[in-house]
Structure formats: structure tokens, C-alpha cells
């Protein structure tokens, strides 16, 4: 819960850049934030959004670490070079990257990296916003072995056939039968990707396959309503959303 810390607690976190082996055995650049101490701590893979592996995601990692999670944020654009986050995101966009198969491999390897940490409690969740929300649903459906999934307004989970590309050939909703972790979804009613109708379709598919999920929709919000640096920010909805995330992870991952 937000601001539930004790003023006399000794809590500290450690954060920095590391690397691990991902898809094609490539070395994947990643940001890690973790509580200082022996644990055991649950883990969270953060799947960054289209604007890239940026300062916002580092902050999100540290926030979760402050709340007792070991967090890894794989740089899904690291194969497109290095520079300021918006430049690298532009290079990835121009290259049509990243491809779904590689994202699944990189994120699944990040899950395994977390589980292999000596401080792990064995539980690992995944969370992402925007394209990262789509990637979170995708990898949890295709790679299995996650204990909780958080989809923050992931666009393209429901994808009309004409939007398919060589890198994104299948809509994640088509893998719903294979999803093996509880799913939390947060969406804004004025978003167009995902639109409320697409969220309805996703929810119907989850229900059809008997999946464990909870969706929450915010009437005043659109895409990216957690982003305090953008006009899309909606303070009340964002704080409610964070409370739901902490509650969901606590119930499914411990911590």
C-alpha cells in the first residue's frame, strides 16, 4: 500500500544495470532494483512501453523494490543500439522491432533470472504498460510459469487481422486458452487502443476459458493515466490503480 512505510524502518534498496542471457542467447541489458537483505522476496519482470527503456520504468522498478519486490526491467530495444531512450525507441520503431518471438524469449529468460536469485521466494509476476501490457499478456500465455500478470492498458492484445505484421503475427488474445496465471487489467474508458470494446472482447475470452482475472476500468482516464509527466495523468485513478497492483501482487506473489 502506498505510503504504508514505517518511519523507523531500515528498508533500503539496491539498483543498477546488469545483463542476462535472453533470446538467441544474446546478452540483454537490464535494470534491476531489489530490497537490500536476505529475503525471501518475490520477483517482478517489468516490460517497458513503446517510448522505451526509460526513466519512468526505472522509477517504477524502484517503487516496487521499495515495497519488497526484486524487479528486473529488460531493455527490449538493446539490440537496436544505445543512446537516450527516445533515440533508441525511434531506432526500434524504424526497424519494426521488437518481434514478438524475441520479446517472449527475453521476458521468459528474465523470469528465470529472477527465480535463480538466492533471495527469491520462487514467485515471479510480470507487469507492463502500453506495448508492455501486451507483452506481459503475450509472454504469460506463451511461455508459462508466471505467478501473476498485470496488463496496464496494453494496446494490441485484441488485434484485427489487418494489423498483423511479420513481427507481431498473432494477437495475444488468441493465446488466452494457454494463460496460466491470474491477470489484473487496468484500463481507461477513453482509450482507443485498447478501446472499451476491445477490453470487453478480452474479458469475454478470459471468461470463456475460465481464467482468473480482474479488470478495472476508469471513466476519467485514457491511455497512460499513470504517467505523471504527461497530460494523460489522472491522479486519483493512478493511485487507485497502484493500490490494486500492490494488493494483487501481495495476494499472488507474497511480499
Amino acid at each position: 500500500m502506498w505510503n504504508s512505510l514505517r518511519t523507523d524502518a531500515q528498508g533500503a534498496i539496491v539498483a543498477g544495470v546488469t545483463s542476462y542471457r535472453g533470446g538467441d542467447d544474446d546478452l540483454i541489458h537490464a535494470y534491476v532494483a531489489r530490497p537490500e537483505g536476505p529475503g525471501p522476496y518475490p520477483g517482478v519482470v517489468l516490460a517497458h512501453h513503446i517510448p522505451g527503456w526509460d526513466e519512468l520504468y526505472r522509477e517504477m522498478a524502484r517503487r516496487l523494490a521499495d515495497h519488497g519486490y526484486t524487479v528486473i526491467v529488460p531493455d527490449l530495444y538493446c539490440r537496436d543500439g544505445h543512446g537516450e531512450p527516445d533515440d533508441v525507441a525511434a531506432a526500434a520503431r524504424a526497424a519494426g522491432a521488437p518481434f514478438d518471438d524475441m520479446v517472449v524469449a527475453d521476458l521468459a529468460a528474465a523470469r528465470d533470472w529472477l527465480r535463480a536469485q538466492p533471495t527469491s521466494n520462487g514467485k515471479v509476476g510480470i507487469m507492463g504498460s502500453c506495448s508492455g501490457g501486451r507483452h506481459a499478456v503475450l509472454v504469460a500465455s506463451r511461455a508459462h510459469g508466471f505467478d501473476a500478470v498485470v496488463d496496464l492498458w496494453g494496446g494490441g492484445v485484441v488485434m484485427p487481422p489487418e494489423d498483423a505484421t511479420p513481427g507481431r503475427p498473432v494477437a495475444p488474445i488468441d493465446y488466452t486458452a494457454d494463460l496460466d496465471a491470474p491477470l489484473l487489467g487496468l484500463f481507461g474508458d477513453t482509450d482507443r487502443s485498447p478501446s472499451p470494446e476491445q477490453v470487453d472482447l478480452h474479458e469475454a475470452e478470459l471468461r470463456k476459458h475460465g481464467k482468473t482475472y480482474e479488470f478495472h476500468r476508469y471513466a476519467d482516464a485514457g491511455h497512460g493515466f499513470f504517467y505523471y509527466h504527461r497530460s494523460a495523468y489522472r491522479a486519483d485513478s493512478a493511485m487507485d490503480g497502484w493500490a490494486k497492483i500492490f494488493d494483487f501482487f501481495s495476494r499472488n506473489l507474497g511480499g
Binding site: H82, E84, A90, A91, A94, R230
Partner: peptide, 17 residues
């Protein structure tokens, strides 16, 4: 803007920057 026309003049051979 929430969304914008994004126009880049680039030389990918020199890297993302």
C-alpha cells in the same frame, strides 16, 4: 500532444543518436 507526427531524419549506421 498525446500522439504526434514523428519525423526523424536519421543515419542508422551512426547509431540511434
Amino acid at each position: 500532444f498525446d500522439h504526434a507526427l514523428l519525423i526523424d531524419f536519421a543515419d542508422p549506421a551512426r547509431g540511434p543518436s
